[in-house]
């Protein structure tokens, strides 16, 4: 089996985002990680290859600094990686899709492409669907259970209120992973050392014939979400507190 995993290099969700301009942030002093949902896709890919043989190849579209994230991801069991380098940080999902497609086609078509359900930086929730359409493959997303057999897979996703739908999908396919699919492994020290020597193919988005400034979904403003400035504390006995809370919600805030 040949499996691609699309990995996005994103700021750790615990890290503060310091804005440095209208549409930019200080990405040089911010801790970056593998997009958490992509990690579930990676774990699934590695365990499928452990069972069935084959190889896991990672692909990332991002700035040069993403190489560190790819090395970390390779320590989980991928054999090599492709980095499509960009100049800017925010790349429109249609262009990202074109770059992923070009890199994958250049390398040779896989049986499965895993992605995450969405990226935690731009929260686009769409790159996997565009990639599938471009490669004429079917796609399922937010998958928390997967069984692969032959040229088919059965996947489960939650649809709300605890309800789950079961989907049958023919391979090759694009599969977007989410929490619940598996428990991503912690790489051991020897695997981390080995990953330092694994090959990373460097491409640039321009050599793939893509103009990274031609996105149709353009970020025009990025602003910090104002934090609430501390709660108004409700005083008194338990009874007084709940009565006051109900009064506030009904009369002051008009939300009940």
């Amino acid at each position: 089996m040949k499996i691609f995993v699309c990995i996005k290099h994103v700021p750790d969700t615990a890290a503060a985002i310091k804005l440095s301009g209208d549409t930019t942030f200080e990405d040089s002093d911010c801790k970056f990680v593998i997009n958490p949902y992509d990690e579930y896709g990676l774990e699934e890919a590695v365990s499928l290859v452990e069972k069935n043989g084959g190889e896991v190849v990672l692909v990332t579209v991002g700035k040069a600094a993403a190489e560190a994230t790819l090395r970390g991801a390779m320590a989980m069991g991928a054999s090599r990686a492709i980095l499509v380098k960009t100049e800017g940080y925010f790349i429109d999902s249609s262009l990202t899709c074109k770059a992923l497609k070009a890199a994958i086609e250049k390398d040779g078509m896989p049986d499965i492409i895993f992605t995450g359900k969405g990226s935690v930086d731009t929260e686009g929730f769409q790159t996997q669907y565009r990639l599938a359409a471009a490669l004429k493959m079917p796609v399922v997303n937010e998958i928390s259970k997967l069984t692969v057999s032959g040229d088919k897979a059965v996947a489960e996703r939650e649809t709300g209120g605890g309800e789950r739908e079961v989907l049958e999908i023919s391979l090759p396919a694009v599969i977007g992973a989410t929490k619940g699919l598996n428990e991503p492994r912690y790489p051991k020290f020897p695997d981390i050392m080995k990953a330092k020597k694994k090959p990373v193919t460097m491409l640039s988005i321009s050599e793939l014939g893509i103009d990274e400034s031609a996105g149709k979904n353009r970020l025009i403003k990025l602003e910090s979400v104002p934090e609430r400035s501390g709660a108004k504390m409700i005083q008194g006995s338990v009874q007084e507190q709940v009565n006051e809370l109900i009064r506030i919600l009904k009369e002051d805030e008009r939300v009940l």
């Binding site: 935690v120 979904n217 353009r218």
Partner: peptide, 16 residues
């Protein structure tokens, strides 16, 4: 829309 898990709001322009 939210960017960075609710830490920032992004305004996006769609050329469409």
């Amino acid at each position: 829309k939210s960017h960075f898990s609710g830490k920032t709001f992004a305004t996006v322009q769609l050329d469409c």
